[in-house]
Write a protein that binds this DNA or RNA. Structure first.
Lengths: 152, 152
DNA sequence: CTTGACTGGTTCGATGTAGAACTATATGTC
DNA sequence: GACATATAGTTCTACATCGAACCAGTCAAG
């Protein structure tokens, strides 16, 4: 049936969307002080990839727009988790650095979220995750590559 | 290494989150009139599963809260895509029905989004999706089951 | 050196979503 | 039947996110 085919593809992406939502909800429940998962993602990114990045770089990595990043960084700065300084090499730009509190927040969040995941993950599910990961990576890479292929 | 393990699990869910985001973006780009993917999901759900459902039922299926559903349904009603009537069997409740315009909107959206997906999907990717789907279903079912296990 | 195109960030307005408090109806227990 | 509890929807507030417009600084072309 022709009509069913788009629905099948759709269903797979729908499952992915629901899983993402459930995992995000678990992450959100592990964070304190009303911090949002996106805030943790930013701090985690800076800790893993190294800080001193520009807001635009971080926005690109997080796949959000510049204006969203401006907002998120303001929240993180007001909580003392990051520090923002002028970019000495570019008068327009800024650079984002983690504070000690930011690194501590990240470490604590990882402990909390790991505990929550551990309570849910069975050996079978861990096997499942390891099994599908290469396909997920390939799928993400393909979608990423196909995004806005020629812009205008 | 102990420290890497949570990050590995995390990475898999992160890939899933990014894929979900990219797929949602493709869906959003296929919708007209400023309609949001969530609006399409609601209409699509009613078309597939049958309309005449209560808002709470729909909210449960969409995994959003009641108040969010109140808002979304108001948008859909103002666009003439659904009609809301009182539930004759429950004085508190309401029932949501698709209009002809709602069904037409859904059909057109499916055509548009299918075209967009077709432009991206290769046979290899379709194989990949078919391959991982059982695991995705199992993973979603497991996470769903583990959610709020004992409430308090 | 000047001008035009581009880029980094911010601001504004709008929207989807969530949490909490509230009203109205239903249901179960005495 | 009366009351306690639960459920359906709404409202209010708050927040993350986006698109569009905007300013400031960079860079390339003349």
């Amino acid at each position: 049936m022709d009509g069913d085919d788009p629905m099948r593809v759709f269903a797979a992406f729908n499952e992915i969307g629901i899983i993402s939502q459930l995992a995000t909800a678990m992450l959100a429940a592990s964070l304190s002080d009303g911090l949002h998962p996106s805030h943790f993602m930013i701090v985690n990114h800076l800790a893993r990839m190294g800080d001193g990045k520009t807001p635009v770089k971080i926005a690109g990595a997080m796949q959000v727009t510049k204006n969203t990043m401006t907002h998120s960084l303001r929240v993180l700065e007001s909580r003392g988790l990051i520090e923002i300084s002028a970019n000495p090499e570019d008068g327009r730009g800024k650079l984002v650095f983690l504070t000690e509190a930011g690194r501590a927040f990240r470490d604590e969040a990882i402990v909390a979220v790991s505990a929550r995941f551990d309570a849910v993950l069975t050996p079978e599910i861990e096997d499942l995750l390891a099994r599908i990961r290469p396909d997920l990576v390939a799928l993400r890479a393909h979608l990423d590559r196909s995004r806005t292929p020629q812009g205008i």
